[in-house]
Design a protein around this nucleic acid. Structure first.
Lengths: 287, 287
DNA sequence: TTGCTCCTCACGTCACGTGAGGTGGC
DNA sequence: TTGCTCCTCACGTCACGTGAGGTGGC
C-alpha cells in the first residue's frame, strides 16, 4: 500500500492541502500516518472514500459541524432525513430571496435604461403588531382632514407611552373627497386610556396586526408627500408587487400643523406577491 | 428639528444600533451630532433617506464597500448599470447552484425513503485538460483487455513525468465484446515521447480536453468495479444528469496485474445537464 | 546552490451579533 | 437604589485562502 504526501493526495482528490489540514484540525479526517521527525503527513488511497463522502455531504450544503456529527454518531436514517428536509426548505427560502433580488435589480436596470429618476430610497420592512390611540372618520375634504388632524393633535397630552403621530388612509389613496381616515398616535406602552375630544368624539385604543411586507419611503416636507406616493406606486408596479391594505403615514418629526413643510413623514404601504408562480420575465436561468 | 438617540433612531429605521455604529466606523453614515462629554450619538429624521438608500442598495446584494464607493464617488449611470448587471449574473449563478443542490438533496431523500443503499461517495469534479501517453484499440474480449493492460503496464518505464495508469472506455460501458478501449498513463510533465511496444504497436501522446463535470467514485478492489458503475449510473439517473462522453478509470493505487483486488480505482464519467429548462419536480418554490 | 514541498503559526474574509465592563440620568 | 440606555473594546462567526518564516531532500 503506497502512501501519498499531502500535495499528491490533494491533487488526486482535487482539494487544497489547507483544506485537508483544516479537516484534520477539526478532527474528522486525519492522515493515516504522520512522520514523527518531520511532521510530514501521509495519506493512503483507501482514505479517498471517506474524504469523498465528506465532500458529497458538503455539496448538500451541510456545515462541517453537521458532517462531523454525521460521521461520528452513526446517525439514524430518520435523523438524516430530517436534516436534509430542513436544508431543502432553507435552500428554497434562499432561492425565493434571490429571485426577489433579481427582480429588484431588473427594475433598477430598466430605470437606468430609461433615464428615470431613481427610487433609491424605497425600502421593504416587516412591521410588527402595534397599538394605536386613534379616531376613524370619513372627512368630506382635504381641508376638513387637516382640521381634524390639528384637533386630534392638540387634544392628546404628550405623556409617556405616546409615540409618533400617524394617519391611516382606509379609502383609496387617490380619493380626495369623502376620505375614510384614521388618525392618532402610536403607543410605545400598552397602558393608555381612551380620550374624548372637545366635540364629543372618542379616540380609542386598538391593536394593529403585524404586516409582513411594507414598502416604505421617507418624505421631507408635507408638500413632497404626493410625489412620495407616486414614487412608491411606480416602485410597487415595477417590482411586480400588489397593494395589500391601507397605507400609513407616520410623522417621524413631531407633527405640527403650522410647520407642515418641516414634517418628515414615512409612508408605509402594505404589499404582497401575487398568488401564482409568475413568469420571471428574464433570460432562462437554467439552460 | 428634534434629535434621536441611537436607540430611538434604530427603532424608527428598524436597524440595530450596532449596525449604525458599524456604518459610522466604515465612514459612510455618521450621526449628525455627537455629545463631546458622553459620546452619545444623535441622529435627525433628515438622515433617514440616506440610511434607506443604503439599505435599498444592500437589498440588491451589493457589499458595503461597493455602497460606500457608490455614495461617495457620485457614480455614473453606466457604471451602476454595469455593477447591477454583474450582480444579476452572479445571482443567476447562485440560483443555478441552489437548484442543483436541491436536486441532490431530493435524490438522497428518495433514497432514504426507499431504504436504498446510499451513494454517499459520488462526487462531482471539474477535470482540467491533461496529457496522456496511451494506446487505443478494439479488444475482442475482457480477457484480451486485461492482457493488453498488463502489456502496456510492463512496457512503460516508471520515469519522472509518468503519472497514474488509466483506462478510457470509448464504447458503451456495458459492452463486454469488441470494446473500444484506450489505456496508458497520465503525464505530469509535458516532455514525453511515443513508445513502441514489443508487438509493434505505438503509444502516443495526446491532450485530453478539460471536462466541466465528471461524476466520480472511488472503488477499492477491481472486483467492486462493476458495482461502482452501477452506483454511478443510478446516481446520474436519479440526479437527472446525462452521459456526455467516454468514462475513465484512473488507478490511484499503482496498477499491478497480479494484485487486482488491491487496486484503488477512481471511475470518472463525464456528465451534462439537459439542454432545456426542466420541470424541477418539486413543490412550487414561488408561491 | 537553487527549487520544490513540506511544516506551523496567524491574520484576513464579511457584516455585524453578542457579551463584558463601565457610566449617567430618571 | 434599581432599570434603562448609552458608551467602548473585543471576541466570535464559517471554511478555509494567503502569506510569513523556516526546514529537508534532490
Amino acid at each position: 500500500m503506497s502512501m501519498f504526501t499531502i500535495g499528491e493526495f490533494s491533487r488526486i482528490a482535487r482539494v487544497s492541502p489547507r483544506q485537508l489540514r483544516h479537516y484534520e484540525a477539526l478532527g474528522f479526517f486525519a492522515p493515516e500516518q504522520i512522520d514523527p521527525e518531520t511532521g510530514y503527513r501521509f495519506y493512503s488511497a483507501l482514505q479517498l472514500p471517506r474524504l469523498n463522502r465528506i465532500l458529497a455531504l458538503k455539496e448538500l450544503g451541510l456545515t462541517l459541524a453537521q458532517i462531523q456529527h454525521l460521521l461520528e454518531e452513526e446517525i439514524s436514517a430518520e435523523e438524516l432525513h430530517g436534516m436534509l428536509t430542513l436544508r431543502k426548505a432553507q435552500i428554497e427560502q434562499t432561492i425565493q430571496g434571490e429571485f426577489a433580488r433579481i427582480q429588484t435589480i431588473e427594475a433598477r436596470l430598466r430605470q437606468i435604461e430609461r433615464h428615470d429618476t431613481p427610487t433609491d430610497d424605497v425600502v421593504l420592512k416587516a412591521i410588527p403588531a402595534q397599538t394605536v390611540l386613534s379616531l376613524r372618520q370619513v372627512v368630506p375634504s382635504l381641508e376638513a382632514g387637516f382640521a381634524l388632524m390639528a384637533q386630534v393633535y392638540r387634544s392628546v397630552p404628550r405623556r409617556g407611552g405616546i409615540g409618533h403621530f400617524a394617519v391611516v388612509l382606509h379609502s383609496d389613496s387617490f380619493e380626495t373627497e369623502h376620505m375614510d381616515v384614521e388618525m392618532g398616535f402610536l403607543l410605545t406602552q400598552d397602558r393608555a386610556a381612551p380620550i374624548t375630544l372637545a366635540d364629543g368624539q372618542t379616540m380609542t385604543v386598538r391593536t394593529v396586526p403585524a404586516v409582513a411586507t411594507m414598502a416604505t419611503l421617507v418624505c421631507v416636507g408635507f408638500a413632497n408627500h404626493d410625489a412620495g406616493y407616486g414614487t412608491l406606486g411606480t416602485w410597487i408596479e415595477q417590482h411586480h408587487w400588489q397593494l395589500a391594505g391601507p397605507s400609513w403615514e407616520v410623522f417621524i418629526e413631531p407633527f405640527h400643523p403650522a410647520k407642515l413643510d418641516e414634517a418628515v413623514i414615512e409612508i408605509q404601504i402594505p404589499i404582497t406577491k401575487h398568488e401564482h408562480v409568475r413568469d420571471m420575465g428574464h433570460a432562462p436561468i437554467l439552460s
